[in-house]
């Protein structure tokens, strides 16, 4: 993440990170996760599942800030995130 100035407490702040996982066979292609992810981590996939729906594809894993909205908004219980060890923000300035 880029900052317009260096925050004074940057060395104390940890950026939450998460790995996004998709249970493709549960997806029905509503695209809510793709549309409402605030960090544009997801795009609509190009491969369809056995029911003919296009599950999302994780394009920008590193952008995920572990907000959990995709997991909450998915009506199909088809996407979730695994919270990773937080990394110190300093590294990503």
């Amino acid at each position: 993440m880029k900052y317009w100035r260096r925050p004074l407490d940057l060395d104390k702040v940890c950026l939450p990170r998460a790995e996004v996982r998709i249970i493709e066979e549960r997806c029905k292609g509503c695209n809510y996760c793709v549309t409402y992810c605030p960090r544009n981590v997801l795009v609509t996939g190009e491969k369809f599942n056995s029911k003919g729906y296009y599950p999302p594809h994780v394009k920008n894993q590193d952008e995920c800030a572990s907000c959990g909205l995709c997991q909450m908004i998915c009506p199909e219980f088809a996407i979730y995130h695994i919270v990773q060890r937080p990394e110190v923000a300093e590294q990503s300035v």
């Binding site: 249970i23 066979e25 549960r26 029905k28 292609g29 509503c30 809510y32 029911k51 729906y53 997991q71 909450m72 908004i73 998915c74 009506p75 199909e76 219980f77 088809a78 979730y80």
Partner: peptide, 24 residues
Amino acid sequence: HPMDKLLRADRIPHIWCPGCGIGT
């Protein structure tokens, strides 16, 4: 899925249509 422990996961996918809000 982290919610599977509170779901009867053997019945998922559910019957609701694509885009239906009930699952949410």
